[in-house]
């Protein structure tokens, strides 16, 4: 009876320590700090971010606006022309206007964003945007070729998003 009690007491003591020693691995540990996402933002002619660890990235996906943190579920998102927010530790948040592209979330907390053009918001001229909206509206409602009207409508959509972002 006594010896049985002793054994069960040992068993109780051993169990929790084994659970603590069991190695736990996840994807993020292999890539970098567990609470960061590794961002690459690349254009055909320039690399803006090259595997930088950031806290959060907000993207305007075709399926809706989304914020991406570390350990995000892997996905591929088509981007609407719009603003992305990049929240860095200490440096605050940076905003770029992208002309459209793709964001790929990889399983090891890596985020790759490809776009044709990306500029910080302060590089845009509100007057140029306003003038182009007027011009695009004139073409969209005019009697030009079907091709011109379609192009003007695409331009209008981009310009209106841009104007809203600049306010």
């Amino acid at each position: 009876m006594n010896s049985f009690r002793a054994v069960s007491r040992i068993a109780l003591r051993v169990k929790p320590t084994r659970a603590l020693l069991a190695p736990r691995r996840n994807y993020a540990e292999a890539a970098g700090p567990a609470d960061k996402i590794r961002l690459s933002l690349a254009l055909p002619h320039q690399t803006i971010y090259k595997a930088s660890d950031v806290i959060q990235v907000n993207i305007p996906a075709e399926s809706g606006d989304m914020g991406i943190l570390a350990n995000h579920v892997p996905s591929i998102e088509q981007l609407r022309p719009g603003v992305i927010d990049i929240i860095e530790e200490g440096a605050g948040s940076k905003q770029f206007f992208l002309s459209g592209g793709f964001a790929v979330v990889q399983p090891d907390s890596q985020l790759s964003i490809n776009a044709v053009e990306a500029f910080p918001l302060e590089d845009f001229s509100p007057e140029a945007v306003r003038a182009q909206i007027a011009e695009a509206q004139r073409i969209a409602n005019g009697s030009g070729t079907e091709q011109d009207i379609v192009e003007a409508k695409v331009e209008l959509e981009v310009l209106e998003t841009l104007q809203a972002a600049l306010k």
Binding site: G100, V116, F119, F124, S125, A128, E146, E151, V158, L159
Partner: peptide, 28 residues
């Protein structure tokens, strides 16, 4: 844009062109 017969490539190039034209003088 797709329903109107544009390809994705064409759509992207229109969007990029209009973004470039909206820049301030220097970066534009």
């Amino acid at each position: 844009w797709r329903a109107a017969g544009l390809t994705y490539n064409k759509y992207l190039s229109i969007a990029a062109r209009v973004v470039r034209r909206s820049l301030k003088e220097q970066p534009r």
